[in-house]
Amino acid sequence: MKRVCFELRVKPDRLAEYTDEHARVWPEMLMALKSSGWHNYSLFMRPDGLVIGYFETDDLAAAQSAIKNSDANAVWQEHMADFLLDPGPSLSELTEVFHLEDQLSAGDDA
């Protein structure tokens, strides 16, 4: 399972609304994410609007393609675009540099 972390930025004057929208994500969008292969998906937000997203997937390219082609996602992205400072077409993926369980497992193998 691949772990994916990404960042985006919410407009400072839209933080409360962004949080409210994510407290009640549309059921169609929830099912689109699940059926597209996005697992264990979380968003974390700093007070300045930096959002860090995390999810796990078996196949990142397939998960991204499936969600991109989802009707629910198209409507959701249009709805959320005004909340973001840079509502670009892709996520700014972060590189994983440490994972506790991986290192513990590697130590067990030694």
Results as ranks from 00 to 15, higher is better:
Asn73Ser: 01
Ala62Asn: 08
Ser105Trp: 10
Val10Lys: 06
Asp20Asn: 09
Trp76Leu: 03
Ala16Gln: 13
Ala66Leu: 07
Lys68Phe: 05
Gly88Phe: 02
Leu104Asp: 01
Leu85Asn: 04
Asp20Ala: 15
Ser70Pro: 01
Met80Phe: 02
Glu28Phe: 10
Lys11Ala: 14
Asp48Gly: 05
Leu91Cys: 11
Ala66Ile: 01
Leu100Val: 09
Ser35His: 06
Ser65Phe: 10
Ala61His: 12
Glu93Asp: 08
Arg14Gln: 11
Asp48Glu: 12
Leu50Pro: 06
Met29Lys: 05
His22Leu: 06
Val10Gly: 04
Val4Thr: 00
Gly88Trp: 03
Met29Ser: 00
Phe83Ser: 08
Val25Asp: 01
Ser105Pro: 02
Gly107Tyr: 11
Thr57Asn: 00
Lys68Val: 05
Leu43Val: 00
Asp109Pro: 02
Tyr41Ile: 08
Asn69Thr: 08
His79Glu: 11
Ser36Gly: 01
Asp108Gln: 12
Ser65Ala: 12
Val10His: 00
Leu85Asp: 15
Ala32Asn: 01
Tyr54Ser: 02
Gln64Val: 07
Asp86Thr: 10
Arg3Leu: 12
Asp102Asn: 09
Asn40Thr: 08
Asp20Glu: 06
Asp82Val: 07
Lys2Asp: 15
His22Phe: 03
Val97Asn: 04
Asp20Gly: 09
Asp59Leu: 08
Thr57Val: 04
Leu60Met: 05
Leu30Thr: 01
Trp26Arg: 07
Ala110Glu: 15
Ala61Gly: 09
Asn73Tyr: 02
Arg46Ala: 11
Val10Cys: 04
Glu96Tyr: 04
Val25Cys: 00
Pro89Ala: 12
Gln103Leu: 14
Leu104Gln: 08
Ser92Asn: 15
Phe55Ser: 01
Arg14Asp: 05
Asp102Phe: 07
Gly53Pro: 11
Tyr41Leu: 03
Asp48Lys: 02
Glu78Trp: 15
Lys11Ser: 02
Val25Pro: 03
Asp58Pro: 00
Ala16Met: 03
Ser70Ile: 04
Ser65Leu: 09
Asp108Asn: 12
Asp102Ala: 07
Ser65Asp: 14
Ala66Lys: 05
Glu7Pro: 00
Gln77Trp: 12
His79Lys: 14
Ala32Ser: 03
Val97His: 07
